[in-house]
């Protein structure tokens, strides 16, 4: 069975597209993949906090911005705050002090999910730095955040999205919005669900919240989660899939 892979660095992340099946060699695959990358580059130009000319930078400079996608993201950020009891927050400490609007934590999953739709009809996955949209059934390893050359488990993922957020090794880049302090109690949170936007938001919120997030995650319909605590213990929601059989 044919399989092809494509990689580009976009939004500061390695984004890879993997397509397999009888149609993988079809020229339409390369065209669809280029459409995925092009859309991600376009969305990055709108939402990057690193680019002076992005609309997000304009917002943070106090300018009035009228753009339907920006409105959609502002609305999603508000929803994310509500759905996570404030543990996901797009208002982050600015490098220069104070707070600024930084929707990057939500935009990444949202953009990848939106761009991946160009591939619908193929058997594929799109992975952006380890967060992925999966169509068809693919076997996904969950990396061990402590011994990073090992996997905690391997699960079969079918027509779903997977997001992992990490705490410790990135110098605790996730901050608990309620305390203002870096989140350290969870080393990693992996969430599987129907939407990459929400899987990613929930994984990030879980890291901010800590191990007690497991009860909240267990109550989210259609989602499964696996948490790695600071002392290396695993917490899984009841519907977390069993290990894939080799």
């Amino acid at each position: 069975m044919g399989r092809r892979a494509f990689v580009e660095q976009i939004m500061g992340l390695p984004v890879s597209v993997h397509v397999r099946g009888p149609t993988a060699a079809d020229p339409s695959v390369a065209r669809a993949v280029e459409a995925v990358f092009a859309e991600l580059r376009a969305l990055d130009a709108v939402f990057s906090t690193y680019r002076e000319d992005s609309l997000v930078s304009a917002i943070n400079n106090g300018e009035q911005v009228d753009h339907p996608l920006v409105d959609a993201i502002i609305e999603l950020c508000a929803q994310a705050g509500e759905r996570t009891y404030g543990y996901f927050d797009c208002r982050l400490p600015a490098p220069t002090g104070g707070t600024w609007f930084d929707p990057s934590g939500l935009v990444k999953g949202w953009a990848v999910e939106r761009a991946a739709a160009h591939l619908d009809g193929f058997d594929y996955y799109v992975s952006a730095g380890g967060d992925m949209v999966v169509r068809g059934t693919w076997r996904v390893g969950v990396q061990d955040p402590i011994r990073s050359d090992q996997l905690i488990t391997v699960v079969d993922v079918s027509n779903a999205c997977v997001a992992t957020s990490g705490g410790a090794h990135r110098g605790s880049h996730i901050v608990d919005p309620h305390s203002g302090r870096p989140a350290r109690d969870l080393l990693a949170a992996t969430v599987i669900g129907p939407s990459l936007t929400w899987a990613d938001v929930y994984a990030t919120a879980a890291v901010a919240r800590g191990p007690q997030a497991i009860a909240w995650l267990a109550g989210l319909p259609g989602h499964a989660a696996l948490l790695v605590t600071g002392d290396g213990n695993l917490l899984a929601t009841p519907d977390w899939p069993g290990p894939a059989l080799s």
């Binding site: 380890g130 996904v140 990396q143 992992t164």
Partner: peptide
């Protein structure tokens, strides 16, 4: 891990908080 896993017939992808 990724180089070696990538060649394993039984894993298609790895999820993790990536630094690369």
């Amino acid at each position: 891990a990724e180089v070696i896993a990538a060649q394993g017939a039984n894993i298609d992808a790895v999820t993790g908080a990536t630094v690369t």
